[in-house]
Amino acid sequence: MKKKSPLTSQFSRNRLLYLMILPAAAYFITFSFFPLADGIKMSLQDFRFVGASSYIGLENYRTMFITPGFWRVFGNTLILGLSNVLLTAFVPMFIALSLNEVANRGFKRTFQSILYLPHILSWVVVGGLWVFILSPNGLVNAARVLFDQESIYFFVVEKYARGLMIGINLWKQAGYVCILFLAAISGINPEIYEAALIDGANSAQRAWYITVPELTGTLKVVMLLNVMGALRIFDQIYVLRNEVIAEKIDVLMYYVYIHGLEQFKIGYASAISVFIFLITLLVTLLVRRVTKYHV
């Protein structure tokens, strides 16, 4: 049998490799890279589905900067986002520290499983569940009636709107973040604790002087994850908003959706998407710099 030349054999081997990676490459080009470039292009256009779209320079960006509605949702995004970034980092950390003090392994495991559960449910389910529980004849109001309090329709009271969004988000995500902290805690060298014990440190001192400092790395990762998530809030608001509380909770991504795909102001909506993308990059870099987070 004649041996193939090394080059040909190399090629036929590689040809299969190229075929195997082709679907992934094609998908990312079509649905990540191309849309990103396309979005930037459309943000500079008066986009039309039918007929030629004309370039209008930075007009869409100008419209964005002078529209009060845009700044309102921008403000909402910052308020909700920042609260989520901080609360969904520190509260789960506190829960993890508290859980770490429990000696019973079965309790720990069960608690962790229960706390994580809402994370795997969709925003429609979580939203529907809370809308029901906080409705005028739901669970919370039934409890209020027992204490002679009058029933409140929580979801249509403006002053509760942001608190509810932040609280429900925390309820949904706490278990997930808590697992990250628990894993980090279990990775701490037990000898450090033994040394502290011999020095007479009590459990609060051990938690504060050993566990918390050892968790700063995880805390940074969590904050960074939260920052990236904060500017992308969409499902929760889409599910839970109503006209009464819209002013307080409508966020950037929802604004993009409404203008782009309901009113078909594609160019304008693209300009806002590009703006969000730039802000995300900027904030991410800033957070990395501030927390000295290195990958």
Binding site: A24, F28, T30, S32, M42, L261, A269, S273
Partner: peptide, 30 residues
């Protein structure tokens, strides 16, 4: 190593930084 491996790595890892929510309009158009 095979020719084009670096390109493949870039094609696969960079999209992580382009979240779906931020390209919904052009993805819809596509």
């Amino acid at each position: 190593r095979f020719p084009g491996k670096t390109l493949a790595v870039v094609l696969i890892t960079v999209p992580m930084m382009i979240p779906f929510q931020m390209i919904i309009i052009p993805v819809f158009v596509t």
